[in-house]
Amino acid sequence: MSVTSIPRKPQQVKPKKSAFREWLDSVLFAVIAATLIRWLFFSAFVIPTSSMENSLLVGDYLFVSRLHYGTTTPVTPLQMPLTHQMIWGTKIPSYLDWIQLPQYRLPGFADVKRGDVVVFNLPVEHPNAYNKYSSVLPDLHPHPLDLRSNYIKRCVAIAGDKLEVRGGQVYVNGAAQKNPVRMQSEYFVSTSTPVNEQNVFRKNGITDFSQFTETFNDTIASNDQSGYIIKTTSAIAEKLKGFDFVKRIEPIYSSKGLKEPFLFPKTDLMYWNKDNYGPIMVPKEGLTIPMSPLNIALYGEIIRNYDGNDNVEIKEGEILQNGKVLTDYTFHQDYYFMMGDNRHNSADSRYWGFVPKDHIVGKAVFVWMSLDPDPVSFVNKIRWDRIFRIIE
């Protein structure tokens, strides 16, 4: 019996990728991996302003954990990877808002607690709110929820808390809260002679200072002929008392009953300022409130803009939904009250209101790099003592 051999099919040799194709594949893989890591696990942020000094300094680079509170699904899917609002180095938007998806939060292993340093999307970049708050934050622009500007502040009150600030001290549910270790306040330093600002102030980490002017005569004794207004921590203020040319140091607080412009809420029903604020109840999911004039001033924007309601308008001191006047309201999600650690130089919840839970991005964990924007010399550009510092 004869056996006929079956001819073997010639093996095809895959063409070798060009160097450009291999480079393109590597870049694509890196972008996808970085996008997934940035969305699911942690993101890198840099501190651009002094609102959190002396806890966080301008030029600190942070890692922010999205795992703590649970990462959120994208609301605006049509956006360029690894961008936020604008294409790098341009004013060109990096997203299209043609598609808006519902947001969901994946499980986390912690809830936002009092004292946490939190990164969140700025609520007042809502299309119905940004014009109203342009006097407090001049460069506001409307953006979708997940692409609003990233802010970092300390949570001082959580949903359901009753918050009050008395003489600069934060009280929650009637109890004085522990101040952050490196919290800054404003002080008047009375001196017997002009000082060397570089050796006295900058050497002690004080970058925000100015000479005494008549503007402060309502809080500073008129017999003080020479002095400075500084923003610093209580520990450094105590240290300055040891200099022989320093006559006295005292904190500067706004008087109770003095109404400060631009505070939240914008109403004549309350006479509050940054040092004497509240009492105010932080909204909590399931909490029902009556629609009094005071509650409309405090919570009207939440009901209209952030609580998932349609066809809500505020008209002639009343809140209407679908043309019907609301006599009471039950909140649909939790909210938080945020303040900067630089208590006299921070545009925070005292000026623009509550932070909704769906705007929470993550918890600031540690500083991985710190660059001084105004170093004494090039050698001092890197703040070595701040690298890998845990954020308290």
Rank of each mutant, 00 (worst) to 15 (best):
V3M: 07
R8A: 04
K9W: 00
F20D: 08
E22T: 15
S26V: 03
T35S: 15
T35E: 14
L40M: 12
L40G: 03
F41Y: 09
S43M: 13
S43N: 08
V58H: 00
L62R: 05
R66W: 06
R66P: 05
V75Y: 05
P77D: 09
Q79Y: 01
P81A: 04
L82V: 11
T83V: 02
Q85H: 02
I87M: 10
I87F: 14
I87S: 00
G89Y: 05
Y95N: 02
Y95M: 05
W98Q: 05
Q100T: 14
P102I: 05
Y104G: 02
D111C: 00
V112F: 12
K113L: 13
R114G: 14
G115V: 06
V117Y: 12
V118Y: 04
F120M: 06
H126L: 06
K132D: 14
S134H: 08
S135V: 09
L137A: 11
L140P: 09
H141I: 05
P142F: 10
L147C: 01
L147T: 00
S149Q: 10
N150V: 03
G174H: 11
A176T: 02
Q177P: 11
P180I: 03
V181P: 01
M183K: 10
S185P: 00
Y187K: 07
F188D: 01
T191A: 14
P194H: 12
V195P: 11
Q198A: 12
V200P: 03
D208M: 13
F212V: 03
T213P: 05
E214K: 13
E214I: 01
F216M: 03
N217A: 01
G227D: 02
G227F: 04
T232A: 09
S234N: 14
A235V: 11
K241Y: 04
G242F: 09
F243A: 06
D244S: 15
I249C: 12
F262G: 00
K266T: 10
T267R: 08
Y271R: 15
K274V: 09
D275R: 13
P283E: 12
K284S: 10
G286C: 06
L287W: 02
T288H: 12
P290H: 06
S292Y: 00
P293M: 04
A297N: 12
E301I: 00
N305M: 08
N311M: 03
G317D: 02
I319Q: 09
G323S: 07
D328L: 00
T330S: 12
D334E: 06
Y336D: 02
D341W: 07
R350G: 10
F354L: 05
P356Q: 11
D358R: 03
H359Y: 15
G362K: 10
K363W: 07
A364N: 06
W368R: 07
D372C: 01
V379H: 13
I387H: 05
R389N: 09
E392Q: 13
